[in-house]
């Protein structure tokens, strides 16, 4: 299989910060809002270099989303930033009415998604946000896999007309994609070609999928891996092409099984091509405190779990 290595681990939120730094230097219409989490979102450099293009909103997220919508009237490209928990569920109605229904060019850029924010526990560990944002008309949903891809996705988001939910995380994860990659919203990335099982993964679970595929390869199983960095619009064509070949699929996400990437894939398969599917996702549970590694292990999101589900789904093939 295609060999992937990494020389360093970095947090995806720093990839966002690097993207914002570049946008600050290249796109005068980009403005950033934040609900008192500047350090966590890694936007210090953007603010230092463009103080007049930063709007501190305080811990008042509902107002922040409305202000962002208002900034678009006249051509600004606002990035409203906070934790994923406070940029989705807390402000669902503001995003729905003032951004998505009004089709405003607002980018909601959120960090600390999922279990792997770690120690703070369940209140902050949003695992429902992809479902909420996927369900919303006009919304584009992006969940990149590493530092470099998050940086590229951030820059692509500024050039995309319309609302975007851009999701990334707190922990350091392997950097294995190219530094100056082209990021095409809505286009799946073929990580590895294979023939026995399709693994579709989003976010840092793409790295876990690569690890799993290496273990499977040692057992003589060839896994195809698709990086679904854009959950909506979903690259149905790429998924169907792959599953028509392998005839089974494992979906992997740091999210509830209900309503996320797995369900998006299942919907596509149900409509077009029936094939067994297994989910790597959190099953109807809130999170808890722990290190990212401990939580990934406990909630079944690691490479080992992907291997198990892959073997199972291959067994289920007719």
């Amino acid at each position: 299989m295609t060999k992937y290595t990494f020389t360093e681990k970095k947090d995806t939120r720093s990839g966002f910060g690097a993207g914002m730094t570049e946008l600050g230097r290249t796109n005068p219409n980009v403005v950033t809002l934040c609900a008192d989490l500047v350090g966590s979102l890694k936007i210090d450099t953007f603010i230092k270099e463009n103080p007049e293009r930063f709007i501190q909103c305080g811990i008042a997220e509902a107002n922040m989303i409305g202000v962002a919508a208002g900034l678009t009237i006249g051509g600004k490209i606002p990035f409203a930033t906070t934790f994923a928990n406070f940029g989705s569920g807390r402000v669902y109605d503001q995003i729905r009415q003032s951004v998505a229904y009004s089709d405003k060019n607002v980018k909601i850029a959120v960090s600390h998604a999922g279990l792997t924010l770690g120690e703070d526990g369940a209140t902050h560990q949003i695992l429902e946000d992809l479902a909420m944002m996927r369900a919303m008309p006009n919304m584009t949903v992006i969940n990149p896999c590493d530092f470099n891809q998050t940086k590229a996705a951030t820059i692509a988001a500024a050039n995309w007309k319309g609302p975007i939910y851009l999701r990334f995380g707190r922990p350091v994860v392997p950097v294995f994609t190219a530094p100056d990659q082209k990021f095409e919203i809505g286009k799946a990335w073929m990580v590895n070609e294979g023939k026995d099982v399709t693994i579709v993964a989003t976010g840092h679970l793409v790295w876990e999928a690569i690890q799993a595929a290496e273990i499977l390869e040692a057992q003589g199983i060839s896994a195809e891996i698709l990086n679904i960095h854009t959950i909506k619009p979903l690259d149905e064509k790429a998924i169907l092409k792959s599953v028509r070949k392998t005839r089974c699929v494992v979906s992997c996400e740091e999210h509830q099984a209900n309503g996320g990437l797995g369900d998006a894939v299942a919907q596509t398969l149900a409509k077009n091509f029936l094939a067994p599917q297994e989910y790597i996702a959190v099953e109807n549970s809130f999170g808890e405190s722990g290190t990212p590694a401990q939580l990934m292990e406990k909630y079944g999101l690691s490479a080992k779990n992907i291997v198990e589900k892959s073997l199972k789904v291959i067994q289920r093939k007719q």
Partner: peptide, 15 residues
């Protein structure tokens, strides 16, 4: 939905 308009105006006025 109520309670949205003023925030939008804040963004617009700030711009």
């Amino acid at each position: 939905g109520l309670g949205h308009g003023l925030s939008i105006c804040c963004g617009n006025a700030l711009m």
